[in-house]
Design a protein around this nucleic acid. Sequence first.
DNA 1: CCAGCTTTGTGAACGTGTGCACGAGTGCCT
DNA 2: AGGCACTCGTGCACACGTTCACAAAGCTGG
Lengths: 267, 267
Amino acid sequence: MPTERPRRRIPEATVARLPVYLRILSEQAEEEVESISSDRLAELAGVNAAKVRKDLSYLGSYGTRGVGYEVAYLVYQIRRELGLTHDWPVVIVGAGNLGQALAGYGGFGERGFPVAGIVDVDPGKVGTVLGGVRVRHIDELSQIVQSKRVNIGVVATPTAAAQDAAERLVRAGVTSILNFAPVVLSVPRSIEVRKVDLAVELQILSYHEQRRATTSTLRSVAGGIGGGPGTNGQVGQVGQVGQGGQGGQGGQVGLGGTAATSRPASA
Amino acid sequence: MPTERPRRRIPEATVARLPVYLRILSEQAEEEVESISSDRLAELAGVNAAKVRKDLSYLGSYGTRGVGYEVAYLVYQIRRELGLTHDWPVVIVGAGNLGQALAGYGGFGERGFPVAGIVDVDPGKVGTVLGGVRVRHIDELSQIVQSKRVNIGVVATPTAAAQDAAERLVRAGVTSILNFAPVVLSVPRSIEVRKVDLAVELQILSYHEQRRATTSTLRSVAGGIGGGPGTNGQVGQVGQVGQGGQGGQGGQVGLGGTAATSRPASA
DNA sequence: CCAGCTTTGTGAACGTGTGCACGAGTGCCT
DNA sequence: AGGCACTCGTGCACACGTTCACAAAGCTGG
Ligand SMILES: NC(=O)c1ccc[n+]([C@@H]2O[C@H](COP(=O)([O-])OP(=O)(O)OC[C@H]3O[C@@H](n4cnc5c(N)ncnc54)[C@H](O)[C@@H]3O)[C@@H](O)[C@H]2O)c1
Ligand SMILES: NC(=O)c1ccc[n+]([C@@H]2O[C@H](COP(=O)([O-])OP(=O)(O)OC[C@H]3O[C@@H](n4cnc5c(N)ncnc54)[C@H](O)[C@@H]3O)[C@@H](O)[C@H]2O)c1
């Protein structure tokens, strides 16, 4: 079993898809599927088969022509490439609505991101236990980060406090931040920041809804602008998509979208 | 005041940035700033100034050369383009950890996405009140969607139930879905789906952390692989970024990343 | 009214991402 | 052993997105 070093630098767009492949492959492994073709994997992931092959080719791990990929080996390779060979403890700043939901969610620990700690400024929150972890005061942040060797921090404070939270995280030694507050954080360029902004997601959906309404108005002059539900409910027929092409994605610096539109075929 | 129709189709990457500009411009408007340059807006949004100008040029709304853009007018134009001239009520499926956090979060209503309803299958959850909205049984979904004219649905059920939830939403008449479950939903191609997958975000961060560790190992042979915190905390000096370029983003069909990396200068 | 400064709008070059098409292996069946 | 069906790996063309650079346009002061 070759332990080749990551040969090329992996494109961000590919990095963003690897976790999806990984989840699917892990599921397949549980169902005792030993081998999988790029076609099948593409179908399950809702992407183009050529894209799957190209993505996987960056791993340097080879499939077998005429056969497909060995699921277990692929899982191993992707996990290694993503740095998932060991856990990455995370620390959450802000134990409000969202922080509590995150802490109470077991999915992170399962996927290798155990919650090493939750901190808050509110004395009323300190001491309460969320998802098995006791909320501690924010002054203990540095100590938690250092003793638990935390590299990843999550900002779940109100908007006004997000910049402060980020700075505290950076000072404490965190090098990657996942930010839920709808603000652009200012941090040293060496820090990797990713943003999840639900309002932005909804606004993008709104744009498409609005566009849908406008377009149909042009065709059927009757349609009101408010745009009632389209009620075309054809749920059964799944639309395997012709993958409407588009520029890349990736956690690029500028801004960039947040979610991905997908519409794959089910099994 | 010209009310020009949206001339060109707006690129997805731009659509994904407009909400960010909108938020910043709204804040500026509250601070009574009347005019803003692309440079300043770019700085606040953490993007390249040329990108800002190009993005805004798609709106057809004009700035004034030598001066900048009129904040209020830009806000109006962006809101119009994004379809934010009226509210878009949303319905949440799944009143668990996440559904409760979403319902309890006032930010959506403020931004034009009031929670029209929350539904769940669990009889124990039905009847409880979250964020001023009573949880109702999922069988009432269609009725809610139709009576409240809901176009956007949010899937916040466990993974196993997400596909079912999506199908119910589509049958009820919803045409856009925001999915929090880590699965690829199969829906008719006419339905717009966006996915927010926190585990994917963390795994992307993990990739970069791992890469950082590997790279530094090559340089300073000493460093352990586990990669303790880097503790280079230089918080004060904000890094206005040279916008490390990258391929596009956008809510493209395939998959695609979810969050964006940003690192702008603060005011 | 002109000179000089500022800032927009956009053409063009470049970089990234996507998807087709096909050569090149691999396994199976006869 | 040979033929055939299958699937990977990838070159290539094209689409999309980003950034630079600069002419056009507007403002201000004299
Ligand atoms: N709740 C959601 O569903 C949701 C959805 C989208 C975005 N968000 C964003 O997530 C963030 C958190 O939302 P929420 O609903 O959990 O808010 P919240 O008000 O319920 O919780 C915020 C918590 O942060 C704590 N806090 C305040 N200042 C702090 C500081 N300087 N350091 C550490 N902790 C501090 C508060 O004590 C509070 O417990 C907000 O920025 C919000 O915009 C939340
Ligand atoms: N909680 C988080 O912070 C978090 C983070 C990332 C992803 N997620 C994802 O979000 C989803 C929800 O997470 P959660 O923590 O809220 O889960 P949860 O178990 O707390 O809540 C799920 C809710 O959905 C309800 N439900 C189950 N089947 C349903 C159906 N068919 N129709 C309607 N409702 C149904 C359940 O009764 C429950 O109330 C999961 O897919 C999870 O992977 C959650």
